[in-house]
């Protein structure tokens, strides 16, 4: 547990580079859920670098793995990795949240190549993914469905409804990933609505549960490599993360959950921590 919770991990250049793409969106649109995106970067990086089957030229090819970012407000991280993987041109990132952009403050299916479902209203992604996972069984296809949820998001009853159904069908192709940064909109999850004991709750709902440091590339990678073994049940991965990771002034700071204005000082501070990836 100590290692899992040791979150002062130093970010490598690729992680800083991906963060710079998020910052492009933030500065371009002048707003966005910064804290919520920064806690997600390593999770999505590992998924797209090592785990998921996908083809940016054919985003809908039948046998691809499905990843739904159910915590849609973390979309700037998804936009960053999708742009990095050439689902669309990186130049578009600057337009985020602007009138004619394809990149909104929540990701939309049909607008953004690689986005599997429109999310933003919390608690929807797991059920949509559940349908996709059941569909894979009906079609006899081997694709996997990954749903990335936020910790505040699983306050929603729909998440637990979906968990019960996934457990009933013993779906081995349905995987929940929880970005457990421990801060929701108003404040600490422990104070707003405590999720603990989260691992036991998830286990009692039928998941095979693991915990990992959500910023540790090697640990994340190892976990997903092990997933290749069939478990005959759904999995839930609790990723211990830091809201605003990479920017000390924003880390664990609820006021950086969403920003709609950046002062010159903040711009300069953000750039400072991007190092050579500064904008």
């Amino acid at each position: 547990m100590k290692k899992i919770n040791e979150l002062s991990i130093k970010l490598d250049n690729r992680s800083l580079y991906l963060r710079s793409l998020v910052v492009k969106c933030l500065f371009g649109g002048g707003r966005g859920h910064m804290g919520s995106a920064m806690s997600l970067i390593e999770i999505l990086r590992v998924m797209y670098d090592y785990v998921l089957k996908y083809n940016p030229k054919k985003p809908h090819f039948l046998k691809r793995d499905r990843l739904i970012l159910s915590k849609g407000h973390g979309c700037l991280a998804l936009y960053a990795i999708l742009a990095d993987k050439k689902f669309f041109d990186k130049k578009i990132l600057n337009s985020a949240s602007r009138f004619n952009s394809i990149l909104g403050g929540h990701p939309e299916f049909g607008k953004v190549p690689g986005v599997e479902a429109s999310t933003g209203a919390l608690g929807h992604g797991p059920a949509i993914g559940l349908g996709m996972a059941i569909a894979a069984k009906l079609k006899n296809l081997n694709y996997k469905t990954f749903i990335v949820v936020g910790d505040g998001e699983i306050n929603e009853g729909s998440f637990w409804e979906t968990s019960m159904i996934a457990s009933k069908y013993k779906l081995d192709n349905f995987h929940i990933i929880i970005d457990y940064n421990k801060i929701q909109s108003y404040g600490k999850t422990k104070e707003v609505l405590d999720l603990e004991p989260l691992k036991y709750k998830l286990e009692s709902f039928g998941y095979k549960v693991d915990e990992v440091n959500g910023h540790n590339i090697v640990n994340l990678k190892n976990y997903f490599m092990k997933l290749k073994k069939k478990l005959k049940k759904s999995t839930a991965l609790i990723c211990h993360t830091v809201k605003g990771k990479g920017f000390p002034f924003a880390e664990n700071n609820p006021f950086w959950h969403h920003k709609n204005f950046f002062t010159d000082k903040e711009v300069s501070e953000i750039n400072k921590y991007l190092g050579k990836n500064r904008l």
């Binding site: 608690g123 996709m132 569909a135």
Partner: peptide, 28 residues
């Protein structure tokens, strides 16, 4: 039997589930 899903009292999840099936070209 594979195309007959009788779920519990979980309407929110059922609508999402049906959506996921429809994304995959089924007709729920």
């Amino acid at each position: 039997p594979d195309r007959f899903l009788m779920e519990g009292v979980a309407e929110q999840s059922i609508i999402g589930l049906a959506s996921g099936l429809a994304f995959e070209k089924f007709r729920p």
